[in-house]
């Protein structure tokens, strides 16, 4: 398989952190270790050739019963090259935590709050990590696969 320039560069620079990569359905995807996330993101943003200046989307997927359980999914876009790349980071453990990208993109602020709200993944270095769509008294994280869809909770307002 021929690798795109982005994948080649990431593999060249972070060969130890790269777990896997593929270009399924024409979308470059790289799976990296949690510890290298901030560095890879900074590299993608600041590399003069790549210039991934957009953090287009940030979300998580709960692969229940798999270890590590969660996977953070970042979609970057380079306006200059009109090219997209997807970076995935497996996160696990009882208290899942990854580095926050708020220092690089202010856009990460609300996205990460949403992921925290829906999945309970914490972000190291996030300035204002609180629930965004649900109310503060809500218990549990609704997009986790072990949160039953029929579960009801009392709607309580701020005290």
């Amino acid at each position: 398989m021929e690798k795109s320039k982005t994948l080649e560069k990431i593999v060249g620079k972070f060969s130890e952190a790269v777990i896997d990569l593929h270009s399924q359905l024409g979308y470059d995807t790289v799976i990296i270790a949690k510890s290298a996330l901030l560095e890879v993101a900074r590299f993608l943003k600041q590399d003069p050739e790549l210039q991934y200046n957009y953090l287009m989307d940030l979300t998580a997927v709960d692969y229940w019963k798999r270890t590590p359980r969660f996977e953070m999914v970042y979609h970057f876009l380079s306006l200059k090259n009109k090219y997209r790349v997807r970076v995935k980071v497996p996160v696990g453990g009882a208290e899942p935590e990854v580095d926050s990208l708020t220092s690089l993109w202010p856009a990460a602020n609300w996205y990460e709050r949403e992921v925290y709200d829906m999945f309970g993944i914490k972000f190291k270095g996030h300035p204002d990590l609180r629930r965004i769509l649900m109310y503060p008294e809500f218990e549990g994280h609704p997009l986790r696969k072990d949160y039953p869809i029929q579960k009801r909770q009392p709607r309580v307002g701020p005290k």
Binding site: N53, Y54, L55, M56, L79, W105, P106, A107
Partner: peptide
């Protein structure tokens, strides 16, 4: 423009 890009 810079802010708009940074905010996605």
């Amino acid at each position: 423009a810079d802010d708009a890009v940074d905010y996605g």
